[in-house]
Amino acid sequence: MRAYKLLSQWLCLVPLLIGCAATTTIDEFRPTNQPIFIAENEKVVLLGRRDSGHYETDREFISCVTNKVNSADINVVPEQIFIDAIYPWFEPRTAPKGLPRLKRLMQDPTVREKVENLRIRYLVWLDGSTETLSQGGSMSCAIGPGGGGCFGFAQWDKLSTYEATVWDLKDLIEKGRLRVDSEGTSYLIGAVAPIPLLTPVKSDACSSLGNQLKTFFVVN
């Protein structure tokens, strides 16, 4: 009887936990079916786009994707080290937004020499953000000398949209694009203590993008 009661309690929690899973879609574009070859001594740098007015690709996300890609045999240069080494040509004001500007920048012998010294072969631009789409419900909390607690229910939908663009710094061409959309709903249940049931939307987007990006590169 006791086991039946425990099982029914767990079954009640299952729909809520399933509701906390994110739905992730990945779109990939590559001009050819050929893998992107990278030599053992060559490196990749992942940079966040920060020139948009209302959002900027957060450093936490860049570092998460960097760690995912770095866990393979691919050498990744940390974003800030690259930006500092090549200052001021990859600041929000000066960073090349397209290949024509990159080609012009790489004509500068000091910039080209620095990129070659750092042995950076591929540059990956990451652009996107995580936004709260809608929220509902209400929660109220109170505290007094006799104790306190929260009562109510709140939910919110989050959407992470990120795009990765791979540039070849040697041949000065685009090698491919990846887009990841991850959406999910999080809940907060107030039953004396607030119980958060959070959907890791951004974390899912990071894992999917990082893992997919790893498959782009083949180490020679």
Binding site: Y87, P88, E91, P92, R93, T94
Partner: peptide, 13 residues
């Protein structure tokens, strides 16, 4: 800090 770095970039550019 980002604004100061931007000042350096603007100056160079």
């Amino acid at each position: 800090i980002i604004a100061l770095r931007d000042a350096g970039a603007k100056l160079l550019l």
